[in-house]
């Protein structure tokens, strides 16, 4: 298998939807401390409230930065994605990030934007899982597609990095480190971001938290 094909296969594997999740933290406004936020708590919270904790909901925040409006800054540690606005503000979205598959950080750009992207399971998954096998040729975009409503393909220069910002079918997983890679957002949020961001926009993935986990 050529290196490129290996990378391609790896990229598909990274974007798989199912996996174990590790604990992260959310800010508790009552105690003003960061408290543990794990998958079981996340699912219970989602069922009880019909959404993720307030921290991870889309909101405009103060954000003093030297980066230009239109830039995306991804804080994998706090599970936030910032879309920089003028006047030292940003739109902050909650994200889910990979645990074992997220061992990267850097400065990339939005190379391509796709609505309702096709998801193609990797060959290993097709061989192992009959449910995946039926999508060996690619699962069309739609509500059950693990890439969700939109995908932003992250490029380094003109080359696809294999990483994507995409939607999800598991909205409760926002705010967690999920063992598959990529950067996942609720479908409403990824549609909102998709409509704002331009192809070519600078994307800074901070070198901290899940970005430092060794994996892949």
């Amino acid at each position: 298998m050529s290196l490129v094909r290996k990378i391609f296969a790896a990229s598909l594997a990274l974007c798989m939807l199912v996996g174990t999740a590790a604990a992260s933290e959310i800010f508790d406004p009552q105690t003003k401390t960061w408290v543990r936020y794990d998958p079981s708590r996340a699912i219970r919270y989602y069922q009880a409230h019909g959404g993720v904790p307030a921290d991870f909901r889309r909101q405009v925040v103060n954000f003093r930065t030297a980066e230009k409006p239109g830039t995306i800054i991804i804080d994998g540690n706090r599970h936030f994605l910032y879309f920089v606005l003028p006047g030292f503000q940003a739109i902050r979205y909650g994200i889910g990030v990979g645990r074992e598959g997220f061992g990267w950080a850097g400065i990339v750009n939005v190379g391509r934007k796709v609505e309702w992207p096709t998801w193609t399971p990797p060959a290993e998954m097709v061989a192992r899982d009959p449910k995946a096998a039926k999508y060996a040729g690619g699962m069309p975009g739609g509500p059950d597609n693990p890439l969700g409503a939109r995908a932003l393909y992250l490029f380094e220069g003109n080359l696809d990095t294999i990483y994507r910002i995409h939607g999800t079918t598991e909205p409760w997983s926002i705010g967690l480190d999920i063992s598959s890679g990529c950067i996942r957002m609720n479908n409403d949020d990824v549609i909102d971001l998709y409509n704002r961001v331009e192809v070519g926009a600078k994307v800074i993935v901070l070198m901290q938290g899940a970005a430092l986990y060794r994996g892949v």
Binding site: F27, V61, N62, F63, R64, T65, A66, E67, I73, D75, N77, R78, F80, Y82, A90, R92, A105, G106, I107, I204, L206, M207, Q208, L212
Partner: peptide, 23 residues
């Protein structure tokens, strides 16, 4: 401490994000 090297704009975006969340 882990000694990280990276481009300045990436490092200073980390400072921006830390200030924004009080980290």
């Amino acid at each position: 401490m882990m000694l990280l090297t990276m481009p300045e704009d990436q490092a200073l975006a980390s400072v921006d994000a830390a200030v924004a969340t009080g980290a």
